[in-house]
Write a protein that binds this DNA or RNA. Structure first.
Lengths: 336, 336
DNA sequence: CTGTTAGCGCGTTCAA
DNA sequence: TTGAACGCGCTAACAG
């Protein structure tokens, strides 16, 4: 028994089909004219031998692979998994494979995965940058790898699909004020992420429009993760002048805040009303159900992937802005 | 201006460092002895030129890449995202990159991704198979690609890291019976997935041990997804002899069941008690909090990755069985 | 310790 | 319509 691992290659198929490697290549790639019976002989041989073309050799020769990468900042955030669905569906339709990378809001990991995308000569990258200031994206653009930013814009020369974060935050905050909250707090993300800043700006605008002075102590920065939201909410709600409403800038932090509220035995919305950014499968499972600013996540992924697919023509960068939608449920409805 | 996209390659670095490609290769891979100053010259040149070695060429030459793939059956299931965390951490420690693929419980997609793993000459694959009966895993094993199955075992000749599903299900069901439930229903997954069958078996065993006859109408098969759980729960709870307790075999289906219960305006646990397989971030956010059979998800990923990393030696396949843990919260505590 | 040479498997010329 | 020859970028084997 021969332990040597033999992988069938193009010459094996050629031999089996009694023809040349060049012809096998032509048949399998649909290029050039090959007579019908020769083609079918090749196909049969390839199937019989379970031939899978070597992506490395192919990429080396063609100077690009057919794989797309999606680099997201938090694979546990349902928003991103929904976006990925959208990307996947388009990728499959265009005969691209999609691989997913989780940067975990970490710039170093993000840079690592960008290197992978370069090293593997990936055909395109969809990315939710961990920071719009210090990303390593230029490594991709310099090498002319098509890039589309999602959720968070990443500079003027890069295609992006985002929502109007300011608008969503503004509507959410205004809604809380209209429900009679007097002290609305804001838990937002890190400064290096522009969505965090835009959502904070929207919050400020809503207060300003309502003639309410901003109490800077009601503004907390956290890390966009569950634990950060938990901490921020605890700190806010146990302060000397606690808020009576919370606008929370993403879904994992909302989960953390709910945990904090539960621990403090506060009730929603009577003690503290809540609106959070991003819808997710569990927001209708809580009691009370969570009011949210929903983003069209699947749509974002779909559009981003289509942008990626149409790259190559050297048109200037496009930013597509979709609209968020305020969904009022129970957590923000004050009982009169 | 020259529009041609020039990517720096190893010869460029060699030229800049005034040496040969072979030496550059040796320095960058830490093989063989290279004098200190030559090495530092190479390193400097590589950094200056932002050189990223071409993974395709390298894989072609070495006949294997350093990328691992994780193929999971549902990227939206928090259980799998937690597993992935565990894999990721080990992968990084061993200097492997990890890419994630979502088969979505679809055999065809799974087969596609297995082809990708083969084509890209991935160094290893961790997989939660969509079916233990009809998977295309043999394509990998034939080609000697190291494979570790997670969550669901995939045949006797393949390493696996799983939990004792029968035991977990049995404990959950016994607990429901002990709390006074008389008619415990079971919502489990598709027949092609062995966890679904094992969890059902555990359920049956618990009933048998308690001397309760199994009512086959209380057993529902669904697709392991939210919508399937919703449907199954609706059908069960609106039947002529509805159950007074539900054992649900995974987390997304539990979410669906909770939605159904809410729609029917039933209350938990007085009308219907619940225990679900898999813990997740939202299970403590619901009212009442959900009792679960928790799997050590991160640990599963970690162990699987370590198994993958230690592959190569042709030892026989190992199956590592970890223990699930029943976490009793409010959804299963009957008030007397 | 360093450089030269050859070839991994494929797609793409070019010639027949 | 088909086949032969070449080279993509890298590393392993061999020379020096």
């Amino acid at each position: 028994m021969n332990m040597k691992s033999r992988v069938t290659k193009i010459t094996d198929v050629a031999k089996a089909a009694e023809t040349s490697p060049a012809t096998v290549s032509r048949v399998l790639n649909g290029t050039g004219g090959v007579s019908n019976d020769l083609a079918s002989r090749v196909l049969k041989a390839a199937a019989a031998l379970e031939y899978v073309p070597c992506g490395s050799a192919r990429a080396l020769r063609r100077q690009s692979a057919s794989v797309w990468a999606a680099i997201v900042s938090d694979i546990e955030n349902p928003f991103f998994t929904a976006v990925v669905r959208g990307i996947e569906d388009v990728a499959r339709a265009q005969n691209h494979r999609l691989v997913l990378c989780n940067s975990d809001e970490d710039l170093e990991r993000e840079a690592d995965y960008i290197d992978v995308a370069i090293a593997e000569r990936m055909a395109g990258v969809v990315i939710a940058v961990a920071s719009d200031k210090e990303s390593s994206l230029n490594a991709l653009t310099e090498r002319h790898v098509p890039v589309v930013a999602i959720d968070r814009s990443a500079g003027r020369d890069i295609d992006a699909v985002v929502v109007d974060n300011g608008l969503g935050a503004e509507e959410a905050t205004r809604h809380l004020l209209e429900q009679g909250s007097r002290r609305v707090a804001c838990i937002t993300g890190p400064m290096r992420v522009n969505t965090a800043n835009e959502r904070l700006e929207g919050y400020r605008r809503a207060l300003a429009a309502a003639g309410v002075a901003v109490d800077e102590e009601l503004i907390q920065r956290a890390d966009y993760k569950e634990s950060g939201g938990h901490q921020a909410a605890l700190s806010l709600l146990t302060s000397r002048h606690p808020p009576d409403a919370l606008f929370i800038a993403n879904n994992p932090m909302a989960a953390g805040a709910l945990r904090a509220i539960r621990e403090l035995r506060l009730s929603i919305p009577s003690d503290v009303a809540i609106v959070a950014f991003d819808d997710s499968p569990w927001t209708t499972l809580t009691s009370p159900q969570l009011s949210v600013v929903a983003q069209p996540a699947y749509e974002i992924g779909r559009v981003a992937a289509e942008l990626l697919g149409s790259a190559g023509t050297d048109r200037s960068a496009r930013t597509i802005v979709l609209s968020p939608r305020l969904i009022v449920r129970e957590s923000s409805m004050r009982r009169r």
